[in-house]
Design a protein around this nucleic acid. Structure first.
Lengths: 187, 187
DNA sequence: ATAGAATGTCTCATATCTGAGAAATATGAC
DNA sequence: GTCATATTTCTCAGATATGAGACATTCTAT
């Protein structure tokens, strides 16, 4: 029998999936997805905010570690760009939900908040890579770094949806995503 | 003074914006966005489902009319493809929320349901245009129609986010979107 | 200025969500 | 098998969301 995943983590993962699609979903929904009782959920998490914080932490850590590893492994901007896309796709919902949380209109992004500074540290690796590409003249003239950043998250979203819908072969998803992204922004 | 928008429509539009980001958001939130009292909202809509139905109707109509107009105006698949992207970007949140509703895992898509058949009628124009491009050999070999469909909605999402964030010049958004999409999938 | 319609204010009953106690049951290590 | 721990089940009180009645206020057209 496969090793049972830690219940707390299982609930957190379920919450990430649920809250990403429906931020105000009742905790009952999260519990169902995690295959536990709502009562059990409350044993691990004081309240909704506590659970949210755990989600946040998991997402930060997952993104930080994946993006960080790519950044450390590759030094050429182009290689970094490609593998950061793959890393983001691997992080999947964790990537897009974290991004959503820090970029919605109600969120006040402040450097004092540890969550925000952690987020910045990770995503600045993404942004600076794009700027490096621009400085090297590898980006199609006219396209701005801001657009490319938006496009990246859009393509990651596409990859996640393709994965969920199951109508694009799993091995192809990353290949297609990189093809569309690279052709779509590089000279 | 500008003509005051019909209250019912104002509430519906607010609901589309709110529910797209937070499906289970309290109606109070929608009322605030629409700048009315919750009491007024309830004068126009029997309950949450009634409001949801109105949102659905507005989104269907907006997408049907925009996509339909493009389909009628252009006959070349490539022109259709380009202008459908622009139409989708113009529909903005209405496009992506409608798409989300009909493609989430809980939704049972059935042809009997009028909403579903209306949705299909509209979005099949999108899909068939992609297939036409493929048959004409204009799509990069290997890329599947399903991927391209996902990519389109991803790029529309990117355009919406760029619009919201305001960090990409408005006139550039459609230009960039079409550039990235066309280079990303066409031979 | 005034009637009629639309909206706001205050209030309330009901429904659903939330968080937690207590005891029963399942699970896993030894 | 026994014990310790984790989880479920049942329960309940408080919080929040929902839907609507009654009346006051504002707006609009004439």
């Amino acid at each position: 029998m496969a090793v049972m995943k830690d219940t707390k983590q299982k609930i957190t993962d379920a919450a990430i999936a649920i809250f990403n699609e429906d931020f105000s979903a009742p905790l009952e929904t999260v519990a169902e997805k995690a295959e536990v009782t709502r009562r059990t959920l409350h044993r691990y998490f004081k309240d909704r905010n506590d659970l949210l914080a755990a989600c946040h932490h998991t997402m930060q850590e997952s993104c930080r570690s994946s993006i960080g590893a790519v950044y450390a492994t590759y030094t050429e901007p182009l290689e970094r760009f490609e593998h950061m896309l793959y890393a983001a796709i691997d992080c999947g919902v964790k990537f897009s939900f974290l991004h959503k949380l820090h970029n919605n209109e109600h969120h006040n992004h402040s450097e004092v908040d540890k969550n925000c500074s952690d987020y910045d540290r990770t995503f600045n690796k993404f942004k600076s890579t794009i700027e490096d590409l621009q400085n090297k003249g590898l980006i199609t003239g006219g396209l701005t770094a801001e657009w490319i950043e938006m496009l990246c998250t859009g393509i990651v979203t596409a990859a996640i949806n393709a994965e969920k819908a199951g109508n694009v072969a799993r091995i192809n998803i990353k290949k297609f995503a990189w093809y569309s992204l690279s052709k779509g922004v590089l000279v």
